[in-house]
């Protein structure tokens, strides 16, 4: 048991030192890299390691007769979460989400320190001591709080109320609801039932399973499947259409959406927000192929009322591409990212 706890303590100390180094800037923030694609699991795994580390540290300190007071355990734990979110996770997390996470963490700390009466008594003892002010030091602290707290609250209030020249917060609707049907080049497409005419098997029939089996492997490197290379001169059917879609993409779209389809094209950073990142699981992977067809065809100017604040400069591609070209480019996007379009069957 002691060995496990010692290991935990070691992990905890190492983790805390690394994090502290990153906060003060001694340790480069990419010392332990968050790897794209694995970041979400990595973050949770790191937090689990930290909890194991804290448990180990707490155990070892108790064993050495230096019990860390429950009050400071709670406060440190909360402070750790706030600092971790602020300095460890990148790109930076917007304040609104950090505020949500911080509040939940505070509630969790409260639940932990008040889960039983003994812990709760231990936790609130330092607070009660200051309020009771039976010693000189506590009396001094109480007076200090009496002065500092109103100043702090006043400062926060002033800061919240003072007029600022910052741009206002925007609640952007990323995926506005599409219309039931859309008219492109004179033909009406019902979004719920239309299919990509180029997503076909060797017999020329619509076959999502066949096309799914030939997309790029997801993960680091995004490798093409063996015998499924659209740039093979003998490629026919689905793969040939993917290649044609790719050609259209690199002639028209990659300037903004990037050659890796991650929204970081040559012109991307001229816009705010930057163009959609198709490799993110929250974009095309969430949507039906017809949704993408509608968005590509109609562009930013065709966003519906609820697409507030209509922050998209994408041209309505129906003015530049044929229907067939749009379907092919949409199919290429799914092929390249390794995602499957959403279906209802």
């Amino acid at each position: 048991m002691k060995a496990i706890m010692s290991l935990g303590a070691l992990i905890g100390v190492a983790g805390l030192l690394l994090l502290s180094g990153m906060i003060v800037g001694i340790v480069p923030s990419d010392t332990v890299r968050l790897i794209e694609g694995y970041m979400p699991v990595q973050v949770i795994a790191e937090l689990i390691l930290f909890v194991a580390g804290f448990t180990g540290i707490s155990y070892m300190m108790s064993a050495m007769g230096m019990t860390f007071p429950r009050f400071w355990q709670g406060i440190s734990c909360w402070a750790f979460v706030l600092l971790y979110l602020k300095f460890r996770v990148y790109p930076p997390i917007p304040f609104s989400v950090r505020a949500m996470y911080g509040t939940v963490s505070l509630v969790a700390v409260f639940m932990w320190v008040s889960a039983n009466e003994e812990d709760w008594q231990k936790f609130k003892q330092p607070i009660m001591n200051v309020l009771d002010a039976k010693t000189g030091g506590n009396r001094l602290l109480r007076y200090a709080y009496l002065i500092i707290l109103p100043i702090l609250i006043g400062g926060f209030s002033y800061n919240a109320m003072v007029p600022k020249s910052e741009e206002p917060i925007e609640l952007r609707t990323v995926h506005p609801a599409p219309p039931a049907s859309t008219k492109v080049h004179g033909k009406t497409y019902t979004l719920q039932t239309s299919q990509n005419p180029y997503r076909v098997n060797p017999e020329g029939k619509y076959d999502q399973e066949y096309s799914n089996a030939n997309i790029v492997e997801q993960g680091m490197g995004r490798l093409m499947k063996p015998n499924a290379n659209p740039w093979d001169k003998d490629a026919q059917g689905y793969l040939k259409y993917v290649r044609e879609g790719g050609e259209i993409f690199y002639q028209n779209c990659h300037f903004c959406h990037g050659d890796n389809l991650n929204g970081r094209g040559l012109h991307a950073f001229a816009f705010n927000p930057i163009p959609a990142n198709f490799t993110d699981p929250g974009t095309i992977a969430q949507l039906q192929e017809t949704f993408i067809f509608w968005r590509v065809s109609k562009g930013g100017i065709g966003l519906p009322n609820e697409g507030f604040p209509w922050a998209s400069v994408m041209p309505p591609w129906e003015q530049h591409l044929t229907v067939d070209e749009i379907w092919k480019v949409v199919m290429f996007e799914y092929w390249h990212t390794g995602y499957y379009p959403r279906t209802w069957d």
Binding site: P92, P94, R172, N272, D280
Partner: peptide, 14 residues
Amino acid sequence: VMTPAELKAMGGQQ
């Protein structure tokens, strides 16, 4: 929910 500055710092909507 974010300011345009945060959006830019994050490097995209996602």
